[in-house]
Simulated assay, not measured.
Amino acid sequence: MKYRINPQNHKELSALGFGCMRFNRDEKEVEKQIIYAIENGVNYFDTAYIYPNSEVILGRVLSKGYRDRVNIATKMPPHAIKKYEDFDKIFLTELERLQTDYIDYYLIHMLPDTTVWNRLIKLGINEWIEDKKKKGQIRNIGFSYHGGRDEFIQLVDIYPWEFCLLQYNYLDENRQAGKEGIKYAASKGLPVMVMEPLRGGKLVTNLPKEAESVWNNAYVKRSPAEWAFRWLWNQPEITVVLSGMNSMEMIKENIKVASETEVNAFTEEDFKLFGKVREILDKTIKVPCTGCNYCMPCPKGVDIPTCFSCYNDMEIEGKLASIGKYVMQTGIKNQPHNASLCVKCKKCESHCPQHIKISEELTQVSKSMEGFYYKPLRFFIKRFMKFDQ
C-alpha cells in the first residue's frame, strides 16, 4: 500500500480509503473484507451517521483489536441540528455505535454553502468543536461537499478546516469543485479526500463501447476502473481516494493498484488516452460546457456551470439521479441557483469561450429538470434539512 502524508499532522494515510456506505449485506463477509483491507494496509475508513447500520458494523469489527490501526472518518448531518444539545446527541451516538472514544476525521456532512455553516455557528458549533478537540474526541475537523467551485472555495476560506472531502474523477475534472477546487484546497494545506472516483460505477458499467475500446486497445492492459484510480493517484494534491468496496475481488484489485501507483507517473501517452475517452464521452453530452466559470457571476444568481453539469449527466446517470442532484445543488440553498431564474440578459454569452448560447440552453435545462415536482421537492428538502434558516 502506498501512503500519503497529511500536511496538517504529518501522519501517513493510505492512498486507498474504504468507503463504508455500500457494505455487502452479509455481515460476516463484510468483517472479512474490512480485516483483509486493514491487514493489507488500508488505514482510512469513511462512514456517516446517516449510512444505514454502517457505523455499527464498522465499530463491531474494529473493536476486535483493530481500532488503533485505522483512522475513522464519520459525519454529522447539519439538517439534524436544531439546537446546541443536538451536537452531542448525534456525536455521542456515533461514538457508541463505533465503540470508540474519539474520531480521527470528523466531517460536517454535505455542507452546501456558507449560509448553512453560519446557521451552525449561531447554534454554537465553533465552541462545540473547540471543546471536542480539547478533549481529544475529535482529532481533525473537515467537511464534505457536493456543488460548484465558487461556493467550495468560500467554504474552504470560512473556517480553519483540517481536511475536506469532495466528488472528483476524470469526468468531473472541470465540473463541480473540479481540479481548480482541489488545487485551491491543497494550496491551503488541506488533505483532500476524494469520493465517487468511478461516478458510482458509471465510469465502468456505463461507458460507451468506443470508450471501452480505447482502454481495451491501450498500450498496457488495465481495467477502466484501474485507469480511473491511477488518474486520481497521479495527482499530488489528492491524499485519499475512497472506494465503496463490497466484494473481496474489488478490494484485492484496488489494493493492488494502490500499491503500485506513484505521483506524477503518467506519460504523454497516458494523458492522450484520457483525452480520447473524454472526447467520446463529450459526444454524449448536451451542452459543451467546460466549467471554466467565465460566464459567472450571473446577475440573477443562476449557477450556470452546475446547471449544465447536472443536465449533461442525464446521459450517464439517468434522468432521475440527475434531477435529484440538480435539486440538491441548485435549489435548496438560501438563494436558489436554478436555470429558470435566467431572464435572458445574455451578459454571460459574451464571456463564454465555447460560444454556447447559454440563455437558450438554460431554457432546455429548465424544461428537462424543473417539472411539476421541482418546487415541492425543493420545499420539502429545504425544510427537512433546515437550509432555509
Rank of each mutant, 00 (worst) to 15 (best):
residue 256 K to F: 07
residue 217 N to Q: 09
residue 322 S to M: 04
residue 210 E to T: 00
residue 261 T to R: 03
residue 281 L to W: 10
residue 273 L to T: 08
residue 214 V to D: 03
residue 319 K to Q: 11
residue 286 K to R: 14
residue 268 E to I: 07
residue 195 M to Y: 00
residue 216 N to D: 15
residue 208 P to M: 03
residue 207 L to R: 08
residue 209 K to R: 11
residue 199 R to V: 12
residue 247 S to W: 00
residue 264 N to L: 10
residue 246 N to W: 04
residue 288 P to C: 03
residue 275 G to Q: 05
residue 187 S to P: 03
residue 304 I to Q: 06
residue 315 E to S: 14
residue 236 P to R: 11
residue 317 E to D: 12
residue 312 N to E: 08
residue 211 A to T: 09
residue 237 E to R: 00
residue 241 V to W: 00
residue 308 F to S: 06
residue 188 K to H: 13
residue 296 M to Y: 05
residue 229 F to G: 03
residue 321 A to K: 15
residue 301 G to W: 04
residue 306 T to C: 06
residue 231 W to G: 05
residue 239 T to F: 00
residue 292 C to H: 05
residue 249 E to K: 10
residue 307 C to M: 02
residue 302 V to F: 11
residue 306 T to D: 15
residue 278 R to W: 07
residue 202 K to A: 11
residue 322 S to F: 09
residue 305 P to H: 01
residue 295 C to H: 09
residue 201 G to H: 03
residue 276 K to Q: 15
residue 290 T to Q: 06
residue 247 S to L: 03
residue 283 K to M: 15
residue 210 E to F: 02
residue 285 I to V: 14
residue 223 S to K: 11
residue 236 P to M: 06
residue 193 M to S: 15
residue 269 E to N: 15
residue 321 A to W: 13
residue 283 K to N: 07
residue 259 S to M: 01
residue 308 F to A: 04
residue 191 P to H: 01
residue 243 S to Q: 01
residue 257 V to D: 01
residue 280 I to C: 07
residue 280 I to R: 09
residue 190 L to N: 08
residue 197 P to Q: 01
residue 253 E to F: 01
residue 201 G to R: 01
residue 254 N to W: 01
residue 313 D to S: 11
residue 238 I to K: 04
residue 207 L to V: 00
residue 304 I to E: 10
residue 234 N to D: 15
residue 314 M to L: 13
residue 318 G to W: 00
residue 246 N to K: 12
residue 219 Y to A: 10
residue 192 V to Y: 00
residue 301 G to V: 06
residue 250 M to R: 15
residue 200 G to A: 09
residue 211 A to Y: 14
residue 315 E to G: 14
residue 281 L to A: 03
residue 188 K to Y: 10
residue 263 V to L: 08
residue 266 F to W: 10
residue 234 N to L: 04
residue 292 C to S: 07
residue 281 L to M: 13
residue 215 W to F: 13
residue 214 V to E: 03
residue 293 N to F: 11
residue 322 S to V: 01
residue 215 W to V: 12
residue 208 P to D: 07
residue 298 C to Y: 13
residue 267 T to K: 11
residue 203 L to T: 06
residue 302 V to R: 07
residue 247 S to M: 02
